[in-house]
Amino acid sequence: MFELASFNIGGHELFVLPFGDIVNYFTPYTAALFIFALIFTIICIISKPERQLETAFGTDAIYAKEVTGKDLRFRRFMAIACGIATMGAVTSGDIFNFTLFVSMVGICIIGIVASVKYKHVLNAAFNYGIISMLATIPLFGGAAITLAATGTLSIWELSAMAPAMPGIAKALILVGVMGEGIAPFYAAKAELFRAPGAPYVIMIHVSSLLMFLRVVEIMLAV
């Protein structure tokens, strides 16, 4: 029933999962991305965070920062949510659904670091949060322009009519995804990455990179 027209980007479809109008699919490419997300999510679920060593200033003492209790549970939950959102984003077969998953990733990224009590981490989280909120304009705007100009949101249909998606919409969606996943691309100060709790912090990076890979595929395919 479903034939992916742009099979030369990510391979032929392997498996289709219809949810009403939203038909998720796995090509070798998206399946690989899905498996990456799955692996990292599982690592998040089963691993305990590391104890980060820090030298206390003024003395020779070295102490280990620990992540414990409620904090730990909360961050694990956020990381899992982030992983699930990423899996959704990489398999989604619908532009608007994809943008929703992307904005969920944006919120989860903030959530993962929000429980850290250092002011500079919270400051970074706040600023990324504002960006991810501003980025919903280009995301939803791009999806809406696509719908208005082509009459469909499905990647299947869009890839069949090849260059139908307006360039404006493509540019807007690209900018939007960049905004939601901007945290790893602005790592020169690496505020977010100094937060302890390696498995969860890695999830930030994993999700935004996978999102980026997926949006490149969508942009080429439609």
């Binding site: 919270l122 909120m133 809406a144």
Partner: peptide, 26 residues
């Protein structure tokens, strides 16, 4: 369009809420 506006609204209000709380904690 309406079915799309409603998720848009939800995303807006939820991000706003999380961010305002982060601001207060910060």
């Amino acid at each position: 369009a309406e079915a799309l506006i409603i998720p848009g609204l939800v995303v807006g209000i939820s991000e706003l809420m999380a961010l305002s709380e982060i601001y207060l904690v910060r």
